[in-house]
């Protein structure tokens, strides 16, 4: 089956990204595929590359980036949710004259249309929230 995952929960203050990752790993191991991972709402905070996790603790942001790269996943970060929360790529940083950008490599800012598109092209859409 083709899955899309929606992650609405932030790292650190929720378990949503970790639960979603365990689920995603299992579904690929079982031979299913992932059409898209869509970070929305507070879930966009999983896309920052500026986090410094405590030692010996989970770096869920990095785990997601590595997992996405390993499997060539389409990871979309909702642009409207992201900008207001300070998750920004190079293009938006330039547009809004921000000094820095922090979107993890391999992830892309895009609109809610990508969520709608994911819904159309997936057999199952599963949400992990906080």
């Amino acid at each position: 089956m083709i899955f899309s995952l929606v992650i609405n929960g932030a790292p650190i203050s929720s378990e949503a990204p970790y639960s979603a990752l365990r689920f995603a790993e299992a579904l690929l191991a079982d031979g299913h595929s992932i059409y898209r991972v869509f970070f929305h709402g507070d879930g966009v905070l999983n896309a920052t590359n500026l986090n410094v996790p405590p030692q010996d603790d989970l770096n869920i942001q990095e785990r997601w980036q590595t997992f996405a790269e390993q499997h060539g996943l389409d990871v979309v970060v909702c642009v409207a949710s992201a900008l207001k929360r300070g998750i920004i790529d190079e293009g938006e940083a330039s547009r809004y004259e921000k000094e820095h950008h922090n979107l993890r490599a391999g992830m892309a800012l895009s609109g809610l249309g990508q969520l709608i598109d994911a819904n159309c092209h997936s057999d199952r859409v599963v949400t992990f929230g906080a």
Binding site: S81, G113, L115
Partner: peptide
């Protein structure tokens, strides 16, 4: 309480704009 309600409504409107 935060933006969850707003972001939900925006998702509804997006689905409508894409004629779903």
């Amino acid at each position: 309480q935060g933006h969850r309600a707003l972001e939900g409504i925006e998702a509804v409107l997006a689905a409508s704009v894409f004629e779903q």
